[in-house]
Design a binder for these strands. Structure first.
Length: 218
DNA sequence: GGCCAGGCACAGC
DNA sequence: GCTGTGCATGGC
């Protein structure tokens, strides 16, 4: 069995990758995390531009804006009614429970912050961990569909593990460093997006090329 | 024109 | 606990 750090090193040799999540502030990371759910990032970008132009990338503004106005601004990201409602609930939660401070929520003990996030509407496991890692700089490994596909094909995962089981596998094998977690997740996504979908051998991202590469000793 | 994209919640079993 | 379904847009 190839170790997770070995796979990391092989991926790193093939892709240039930095901190990755494109955002100008932790709050913008949060907004992006909601908007990107089951949605192409290109569409998220359009919505973020709209919000920025409307000077609405701010907790109080977003919380108090008329729902329909917010819906129209984020419309390009899809599921806009759901996402508008959930974003406003999140901002109102910050205002009421954390004096409007995102940092106040995220600087709690890691498991406490995670549980609080998971209790909010529209925040599931992946979104919670994305917020913790990329907005809060907390070492919480993000598991997404790419991770499941790639590491399932590599034989690291059986395919029936629950989210938290997979997260534990990664967090047990990868040193708890924020930058390392960020880059590893980014490498997985980038690797799958660039290579997996483009290969003629690709079948729902179980593409032989990507896996042979990752397994191959370099 | 069909399929997919960096999910989530909820109903029904 | 697991599975199916609704949510909606834009790019390929």
């Amino acid at each position: 069995m190839v170790g997770l750090m070995t796979i990391y090193e092989r991926l790193q040799k093939q892709h240039q990758m930095d901190g990755w999540w494109p955002a100008e502030s932790p709050f913008e990371v949060v907004v992006g995390a909601f908007l990107t759910q089951n949605t192409n990032w290109n569409n998220v970008e359009k919505a973020l531009v709209n919000l920025r132009d409307a000077k609405a990338l701010e907790i109080t503004t977003l919380a108090q804006m008329p729902r329909q106005e917010l819906e129209q601004l984020i419309r390009p990201s899809g599921f806009f009614r759901q996402k508008a409602q959930r974003l406003q609930h999140f901002c109102q939660h910050l205002l009421h429970q954390h004096e409007g401070s995102l940092e106040h929520l995220l600087r709690q003990e890691l498991d406490s912050a995670r549980q609080e996030l998971l209790g909010l509407s529209g925040i599931g496991h992946e979104t919670a961990d994305s917020i913790l890692l990329y907005a809060g700089a907390r070492p919480s490994f993000v598991i997404d569909s790419y991770t499941r596909r790639l590491f399932g094909r590599l034989g690291v995962l059986a395919g029936n593990e629950k989210y938290d089981q997979i997260r534990q596998i990664f967090m047990a094998a990868v040193p708890a460093e924020v930058l390392l977690y960020k880059i590893y997740h980014a490498l997985i996504v980038t690797h799958c997006k660039e290579l997996c979908r483009k290969s003629p051998l690709c079948q729902q991202c179980f593409c032989a090329d990507i896996c042979d590469y990752a397994l191959k000793a370099t």
